[in-house]
């Protein structure tokens, strides 16, 4: 079995807008490896969401090829499930009905599927909310219900497009830790899109940094820290901080490019940031703060 689950080769996506042609993705080549948590990060509006829609099969590329397990991607498929930016739970279904939707829609609502749905609902801690509608759940609960709804289909690839955006800081970090644990437990392949550098480094096995629009891969960085991860550990982890500095310098360069700024300004910014990390290090236990 090949290590690569999904591969993109020279993928471009152009849209016709009022004035002319808008290039959103250009010559993008990337691999999604099995069993890895791949995080895609890039400046907002760079075309990351378009990339996820292409991989999900909701849209067709203007040129280039997208393959899943060696076969071309021609449309949406249950093997590649998408969790959208804001909750896309069906408002007219209870948590239970939402989770069971996939199997039911495919005519597979067997007793085993029902049992799996039930245990997933327990696993995401929504047992008491089985018969509630999405509007009766909090933001974090909705995201967890959606995770269960995706997992019940046993997808080969889970695509999460900024799934924790809009949650408050506390809930967000809890969800990140929770997701890291869940990922480790289910041994799935995940494509996770975000604009949040801390979230990206916290979750990523492979961090893919994208350029500004028209977007393509700028840099791939591996983060070799085992899941499940804890936020407190990552903050003090040297290799994580190192990745952060490298990622920030690239991201900042991309952001400055869209502002029309110079590489010098970018370098200054990173230097300032690295200095700050240095101070943080000196305050960790073992090196008591002055």
């Amino acid at each position: 079995m090949s290590q690569t689950l999904v591969e993109l080769r020279q993928v471009s996506k152009f849209y016709r807008d009022g004035i002319g042609i808008k290039q959103v993705v250009r010559d993008c080549t990337l691999d999604i490896e099995r069993g890895k948590l791949t995080v895609v990060i890039g400046p907002s509006g760079c075309g990351k969401s378009t990339l996820t829609r292409l991989i999900a099969g909701f849209e067709r590329p203007t040129s280039g090829t997208l393959m899943s397990e060696g076969r071309p991607i021609t449309g949406p498929h249950k093997d590649r499930l998408v969790l959208f930016q804001e909750s896309a739970l069906f408002p007219w279904m209870t948590t239970e009905q939402n989770v069971l939707y996939g199997p039911a829609a495919r005519g597979e609502a067997t007793p085993q599927a029902m049992q799996l749905a039930g245990s997933l609902i327990d696993r995401v801690g929504l047992t008491a909310f089985r018969r509630k509608y999405p509007t009766q759940l909090s933001g974090g609960m909705q995201r967890r219900a959606e995770l269960a709804r995706a997992l019940v289909n046993n997808p080969k690839l889970m695509i999460l497009d900024e799934p924790f955006r809009g949650l408050d800081a506390m809930t967000k970090s809890l969800m990140q830790e929770y997701f890291s644990g869940l990922f480790q437990e289910m041994q799935a392949t995940v494509l996770f899109v975000t604009t949040d550098i801390d979230e990206a480094i916290f979750l990523a096995d492979r961090l893919i940094i994208m350029t500004n629009a028209p977007t393509r891969v700028r840099k791939v960085i591996n983060v070799d820290i085992p899941h499940p991860r804890k936020l407190a550990d990552i903050v003090e982890n040297d290799s994580a901080n190192d990745v952060k500095i490298r990622a920030l310098s690239i991201l900042h360069e991309e952001a400055m490019r869209s502002f029309g700024g110079s590489a010098k300004a970018s370098a200054d910014f990173v230097q300032a940031y690295a200095a700050r990390i240095g101070r943080t290090d000196s305050m960790t236990p073992g090196n008591p703060a002055p």
Binding site: A56, G75, H77, K78, L81, V82, F84, Y101, G102
Partner: peptide, 9 residues
Amino acid sequence: QAALSMGAS
């Protein structure tokens, strides 16, 4: 889209 991606007709 969510429904289609879960394999609904």
